[in-house]
Design a protein around this nucleic acid. Structure first.
Lengths: 170, 170
DNA sequence: GCTGAAAACTCTACATA
DNA sequence: TATGTAGAGTTTTCAGC
């Protein structure tokens, strides 16, 4: 679907392929690591004036490089000690049905993340629930009950840790 | 009256099962949605004094309920347009070997997240890379080359969206 | 544990180089 | 585009409840 072939006289949107300079990249890395860092702190670490830092931050938000800032919550400590990855295979691959599932999935109760993937399964649902019963209820009531779902398989998640892809200064 | 009878003779750690009151939970939800919200704003939304809000926030951090705050970065716009889920099955399930993989995985180049799961595979590695070559190199050089890895299978990720498990006020 | 007030600090707009 | 300045606003400590 993504036709980025000739980007030339086309859309008025910013085509900027990776129009990020070194300062932008370092700011993104700092915020990936600590999204609550004060602007003054960020500026000091980057070696620029706070006002410059602010301008950059705004620009990164506007360009969609930074989509938001979220707390990393220990789900077990907020009453959701059981996490699972539910692999979902859809039956009918009609656009509408896929779209319906895609639209509904992130809002299903307990869903932490949704991955639309290639391969044996179509979706991976990362869910967090209070107890085993809630897990079964989730799969039965919200996944298997959907007409477009052909099959679902549940794996428990022992551990889920963040990687370093964008986090650390690297 | 919640009976906190004797929490005593056990371990010195906080056993607090879900020792969060309503205020704590609402604060966690607000920060899950916008981790950069000012303390004064959070306090106003919670209907408490800023100093109270600050105390709660600190306490949640200290208790490990809030593990950190991270920017949600559009990986495609920072030069990592290809994402994949690499399913890894380990060969030898010796504690040491599993531990070695577990320790190394989050630091491998391009790793966004690591899931240790039950079922057909042992680990799911969510990775983001610059191009298909980098994906192949990742799998060959950093996964298949490890002696404890028996098998790896790669699925492309078309889309990855956050769920609503902890995000919204609910 | 919550609050209010006060000092220190930070954010942010704007004019300028 | 980056910077310095200045007014407004915020953070954070602390005594008192």
């Amino acid at each position: 679907m993504a036709k980025e072939l000739r980007r030339a006289p086309g859309p008025p949107e910013r085509p900027a392929p990776s129009g990020l300079d070194d300062l932008d990249r370092r700011l993104v890395a700092l915020l990936a690591e600590d999204a609550r860092a004060a602007n003054a702190t960020l500026a000091a670490e980057l070696g620029v004036a706070p006002s410059t830092c602010l301008t950059r931050l705004r620009s990164l938000r506007e360009r969609g490089v930074l989509r938001g800032f979220h707390a990393d919550v220990d789900l077990a400590r907020v009453g959701l000690p059981i996490q699972a990855m539910v692999s979902v295979r859809l039956a009918v691959h009609h656009r509408d049905r896929v779209a319906a599932f895609r639209a509904a999935a992130p809002g299903l109760p307990g869903v932490v993340a949704v991955y639309h993937v290639t391969g044996q399964v179509d979706y991976l649902l990362h869910v967090a629930v209070a107890d085993p019963d809630a897990l079964r209820d989730f799969v039965v009531d919200h996944v298997l009950s959907r007409p477009e779902v052909a099959h679902a398989e549940t794996s428990l998640i022992f551990e889920h840790v963040r990687g370093t892809a964008v986090g650390p200064p690297g």
